[in-house]
Nucleic acid binder design. Structure first.
Lengths: 184, 184
DNA sequence: GGCAGAACCGAACAGAGTGTTCAGCATCGG
DNA sequence: CCGATGCTGAACACTCTGTTCGGTTCTGCC
């Protein structure tokens, strides 16, 4: 049976939606398991049969997203700007989720995971010649700017579209990376 | 009386040092008030006469630093790379504190404050002509890279000196900023 | 339609951590 | 030396967590 019991789907979905709404309202740290229970109208014991704790619920929600995201990010060429653009597009298509997961309101847990995912991806595809600056630092640079811009967009309610954000990213990031990878 | 009671100094200092050590050992989130009390050998009630909660203790420690930091950052010219360099130098002079406050182990509280401080500073001194990209985004870019590099240095035990970090920063960040501030 | 099994419920419980109170002791500065 | 201030430690109420379990409801399947 590849598809779960309907009740399970309902419960998990309800818990996840309640969590997102509550994160948006008062921030991940201030959300309590009891809050989620009340909002989703789910029994306490039921919650703990599905998730070990609040963080597990968050990560389950994140994993559902990140599986799709990995697909899109994996298909990009070895251009350091591509992952960022794919991520921006992806975020714009799922604004509600990103509003809860990234930005000020989301916990640092998701930020850490996102950062690690991006870092690994960039490390894998940035195996270039002798850069002036260690590849590790270049990757750190790309990751920080990507997540920084994304967070900015999220916290400002996605004021422009994904293409605009990608253009800004290219303008700001590419010159530096180019200068470092091709020593003058 | 400009100087406090010696007992007060001793207590506050002990609490702060205990907090830093514990953050370094197991990360801010996992540090409990009781841990700090035991480590500093201070009574529970004493703690709460000094600080409202764990976060207040952290912020008091941070404020002591940030006062000095503001001084150094305030004196820089309107070159967007200067604040970063000053911050790097400052961090290298107080590695133990930054190991606790920034990096993976430190809570996101300090990160938020540092980010806000940097953002405000850069916003104030980056009042330039019509940039291709909103100044807000440029500032976000600079802030993210500065904190990103700093976090990297902290988490890797300050592998190079401040000048090296500043040079890497300039190489990576300046080309993009220049390209954006002076439309081709 | 009916049945076995799975999911859900809710109440109760133990445990950890928080923040407050207070009476008594110690230490400080003058 | 003394009045004021700070520290102590134990006790307490509170919130949140994570677990347990007997009883109820729903689902998939025959």
């Amino acid at each position: 049976m590849v598809q779960q019991d309907r009740r399970v789907r309902r419960t998990r979905r309800g818990l996840q939606e309640a969590l997102f709404a509550l994160i948006f309202e008062k921030g991940y740290d201030r959300v309590t398991v009891q809050d989620v229970l009340d909002r989703a109208d789910v029994g306490r014991s039921t919650f703990y049969t599905h998730f070990r704790d609040k963080e597990a619920l968050l990560l389950a929600a994140f994993d559902a997203l990140s599986e799709d995201l990995r697909g899109e990010l994996g298909a990009v060429a070895s251009d350091p700007a591509r992952p960022a653009e794919a991520l921006f597009r992806f975020a714009y298509e799922r604004q509600p989720a990103f509003r809860a997961l990234c930005g000020k309101q989301g916990g640092e847990v998701v930020q850490r995971h996102l950062r690690r995912m991006l870092t690994e991806l960039l490390m894998a595809q940035l195996c270039l010649g002798k850069p002036v600056v260690p590849a590790e630092v270049v990757v750190e640079f790309c990751t920080s700017t990507t997540l920084g811009l994304l967070g900015w967009a999220v916290d400002n309610g996605f004021p422009h579209d994904a293409a605009w954000l990608a253009a800004a990213y290219r303008r700001l990031v590419e010159p530096g990376v180019r200068a470092v990878l091709r020593p003058a």
